[in-house]
């Protein structure tokens, strides 16, 4: 036990924007875990149901969660006056991974969508597209976990 360490106290007005941001981030990582699990499990045998689950999770889970997280991030950053030149490096890490990550989300969504469509139309298995999407989703998941570390430990 340590004496003298206190956690920072924030104004009440920051609570809701922070709740929105954290809730969105948790849903984002949760839906990415579901997507990655489904796509990784479909990697070898190309299980169509799991591939569709991965695609739907990306479309109906990851994208809306990203929007909630990003809106919350902008809101809490403006409340705390952590925008522009006032932004410390951990905020920059957050915005960079969030915005860069969205590009990867869109690309992996397109790849997974093409894979599901090809499998449905029997135009080959679409395995290459599905596997590329799996790799991107796995990279995203790791990047966002690093971001969670930056958001909580706040290095500089």
């Amino acid at each position: 036990m340590t004496v003298g360490v206190t956690s920072p106290i924030r104004p009440d007005a920051w609570d809701f924007p922070l709740l929105l941001h954290v809730f969105g981030a948790m849903l984002l990582v949760g839906t990415l875990v579901l997507t990655a699990s489904a796509l990784i499990l479909a990697w070898r045998n190309g299980d169509g149901a799991l591939a569709r689950l991965g695609y739907r999770s990306l479309l109906l889970g990851v994208v809306p969660a990203w929007i909630v997280m990003r809106v919350g991030a902008e809101w809490i950053a403006s409340k705390e006056d952590l925008t522009g030149s006032n932004a410390p490096s951990w905020v920059d890490i957050g915005f960079n991974t969030a915005d860069g990550g969205f590009l990867l989300i869109v690309i992996s969504l397109i790849l997974a969508g093409v894979a599901v469509r090809r499998a449905r139309r029997a135009e080959g298995s679409g395995a290459g597209f599905r596997r590329a999407s799996t790799v991107l989703v796995s990279i995203l998941l790791i990047a966002y976990l690093v971001t969670v570390w930056a958001m909580t430990t706040k290095p500089v």
């Binding site: 849903l27 949760g30 875990v33 579901l34 976990l145 969670v148 570390w149 909580t152 430990t153």
Partner: peptide, 17 residues
């Protein structure tokens, strides 16, 4: 705090699944 929050993310991932 990081380990606590990371664990909470795991709980929400379960809820999503």
């Amino acid at each position: 705090l990081f380990l606590h929050v990371l664990s909470a993310f795991a709980l929400v991932a379960t809820v999503v699944i």
